[in-house]
Design a protein around this nucleic acid. Structure first.
Length: 244
DNA sequence: AGCGACACAAAGGC
DNA sequence: CGCCTTTGTGTCGC
């Protein structure tokens, strides 16, 4: 995580409903370098059931490609919590749900690189950042004298040439409609979960995401818009005060 | 009491 | 340094 959260005195993570946060995520398989990844096929087991719904067994299903998703959850109730992403234009631009990134295994860049990657406008700098955060399949095919028809690896199943090595979720906020206050005695908190998905084709050739693995943040305290949350503490991205 | 909208201004990119 | 952009947050009004 980059911007958006600070660690409170007691170690809790504190964020602000009105502020952006940034999160980057990647995955890798132990002892698999990229070549070994390319040379393999990957499978998962899917529970299958009869027409009546009885569990019959497990089917081995080939994973078409991998993807990384970011989701938010709430500690107490089963209310689903959603996230929104803004553009740099914020109110003047569109809002949308955080993307699900088709992704190949990648190395996490160091934090300095993540910080340096935001709001780049210079074309050459953007290009350099893209080399870290994306795998360019078209370039790879060009370099290896392959194409979509000749390629027999998992790469050919990815839906476009732009494939993440590291998924970067920027300008994310909890949807404004989340309730911050807890309704019960227990305090309510949120967690963010990064999910590694295996995308498969079901029997109707429909694309289905299968959750393979996930990792979650510690409990997050999200401070709402109440002025009481803005008294003295300077927040994660705080940059000074407006005259009062 | 909390939200959308608009506004201000500090920090960042170049 | 100057000009533009990005983003934390002050504030109005419903």
């Amino acid at each position: 995580m980059d911007r958006g959260f600070e660690i409170g005195e007691n170690g809790t993570w504190i964020g602000y409903k009105r502020n952006y946060f940034t999160l980057v995520a990647g995955f890798s398989f132990e002892n698999f370098d990229f070549d070994r990844f390319i040379q393999n096929k990957f499978y998962t087991y899917e529970k299958s059931s009869s027409r009546g719904g009885d569990l019959v067994g497990e089917n081995k299903v080939e994973i078409s490609y991998f993807a990384i998703r970011l989701v938010a959850k709430c500690s107490d109730d089963d209310v689903s919590i959603s996230l929104v992403q803004h553009t740099a234009k914020r109110d003047k631009g569109p809002q949308f749900p955080p993307p699900i990134y088709p992704a190949v295994p990648g190395d996490m860049p160091d934090h300095e690189t993540v910080k340096a990657s935001c709001n780049k406008r210079n074309g050459r700098k953007i290009e350099n950042m893209n080399k870290i955060f994306y795998f360019d399949r078209a370039e790879y095919y060009n370099d290896t004298n392959l194409d979509t028809l000749k390629d027999e690896s998992i790469l050919k199943n990815y839906p476009s040439d732009s494939i993440a090595r590291v998924a970067r979720f920027e300008r994310i906020q909890f949807t404004s409609s989340i309730r911050i206050k807890s309704t019960s005695v227990n305090s309510r908190y949120f967690t963010l979960h990064v999910e590694l998905l295996g995308i498969i084709e079901d029997e109707d050739l429909q694309i289905q995401p299968i959750l393979l693995s996930s990792i979650e943040t510690p409990p997050l305290i999200i401070r709402g818009r109440s002025p009481s949350n803005y008294h003295k503490e300077r927040t994660s991205g705080y940059r000074g005060s407006i005259s009062r």
